[in-house]
Design a protein around this nucleic acid. Structure first.
Lengths: 260, 260
DNA sequence: GGAAATCGGTACGGAAGCGCTCCAAGCGCG
DNA sequence: CGCGCTTGGAGCGCTTCCGTACCGATTTCC
């Protein structure tokens, strides 16, 4: 709104620096560099962000899109081990000085993201201390999320994890409605689809959510929060106000209207 | 052996810079600083390394000791989410610029560790680029371990995870024998003690391990490796040659002779 | 408007593991 | 030397979830 046009006609439709928490901390020259060195992209559903053990050449900063990091197992199965929304970036491996990751990443919810070459990302990290510090804070939260997930995956039920996943995705997509099938959620949670169906049916019967053929709507967020495990609150707390970055109204609509 | 005495009579009984992979990369002035600014300690079984949300004032670099990072749950239960041996350091949160961690850490296998103030650690990170780079590499491996653990905890059986845990601990303790009860292993794996007893009994019947009242011996490492899940190989691979740091013979004995 | 694909509901046998209990053997301490 | 604690073995009912299958409902595509 108020940040309608920093750079005149070059200004993209979505406000890059309001839509993503990490980009938001860039000021002045570095902000100009990030804007000049990157571009707004529509990330499509299931689009690959990076492949395991392959060179990661770009950094994505989701605005309305959500990315997943998954571990692919020997038997072909996969399971989600990380979620990246407008609070973060896909460039965690780059941040740690690596050129690749053991895991893979793809788009879970289609939408807008700011994309920049890995080289530009690195140079921003070098040049801007606030950027570096903010990324470090994000890395901490990300690492904490990983640990909590490891615990949650072992100790909590499909039902609780299902509720947690919906909440975390809702936070990141910036909307109470998004595309999601039981089948896909089952894969992400490392559980059977039928198990998710049972859990989701209970959540729906309780009035917390509504779903129909690939679209989920969160109806009662406090209710969901009360029924999920502590892991949601702990993880969300670690991300602190990174998640409080508000998407513009356009962002929300944009993500929903994005066809696959 | 060949590095018997870098610093004359000040030289501790255990070789700090051969015993821990991270310290091993310090040379010259920084090496002197690490030696002068730290001290060799005997870490006792179950000794606290740091508490959740409390200031972490020291960095530990295990030589023969093994540290655990665990998540404590609301219901009082706990589960291991990280293991630190002579390939690493407890200072991962400090490395990310944090002063504390959401989790807690304690000693899992008693033994020697090099301890230094957090301040000294930070100043070494600032001063030595090889140190910084090596720590970054360690951080990558650590993050990867977390992700793999999250997947493993969801997808693999008590039996497989049990074998993996024994292998990973064996790697870090630098010995095929260490103290461990079924009860404790159950807590670490987030499973019942009786489940571990069954799994361990199968492993023993297969001739892979032997155990008796709190002491486990790995008899057939290749056998164990063949029976565990892929997660062991993936995680170990990421740590690369960090784990190849050889403990001195004294270290091995030291860890075993340490009474609790 | 009809065919095909996707999505969700349901069922059900069975495996894995939970939660608990009881018990025996070994070890450590007084 | 014996008591008591720790450790580990075993059993068992129960829950959760797996693995799979089938089928109806809805959407999409032609």
């Amino acid at each position: 709104m108020s940040t309608q046009a920093y750079f005149g006609t070059q200004m993209p439709k979505y406000d890059v620096f309001e839509g993503n928490a990490i980009l938001a901390c860039l000021k002045g020259k570095e902000r100009t560099l990030a804007l000049a060195g990157g571009e707004m992209v529509d990330v499509k559903l299931r689009q690959t962000i990076y492949e395991p053990e392959e060179r990661i050449s770009e950094a994505y900063f989701p605005l309305s899109a959500i990315l997943s990091v998954v571990a692919r197992m020997k038997d072909g199965g996969m399971i989600e081990i990380g979620t990246i929304g407008r609070e973060g970036t896909s460039a965690v491996p780059l941040l740690m000085g690596s050129e690749s990751s053991a895991n893979e990443s793809f788009c879970q919810v289609p939408g807008k993201a700011w994309k920049m070459p890995g080289k530009t990302f690195r140079s921003l990290v070098d040049k801007s201390q606030p950027f570096r510090e903010f990324l470090n804070r994000y890395l901490q939260a990300y690492v904490n999320m990983l640990g909590q997930l490891a615990a949650c995956n072992r100790l909590h039920s499909v039902y609780e994890r299902c509720a947690r996943w919906l909440l975390m995705t809702g936070d990141r997509v910036g909307s109470n409605e998004f595309l999601l099938t039981h089948e896909f959620l089952g894969i992400m949670l490392g559980s059977r689809r039928s198990g998710v169906t049972v859990a989701a049916a209970i959540l729906q019967k309780a009035g917390f959510i509504h779903y129909s053929h690939g679209t989920v709507t969160i109806l009662d967020r406090p209710g969901l929060e009360a029924t999920t495990c502590e892991c949601y609150a702990i993880t969300t707390g670690q991300f602190g106000d990174l998640l409080s970055v508000r998407p513009t109204a356009k962002d929300t609509n944009g993500s929903r209207s994005a066809k696959r």
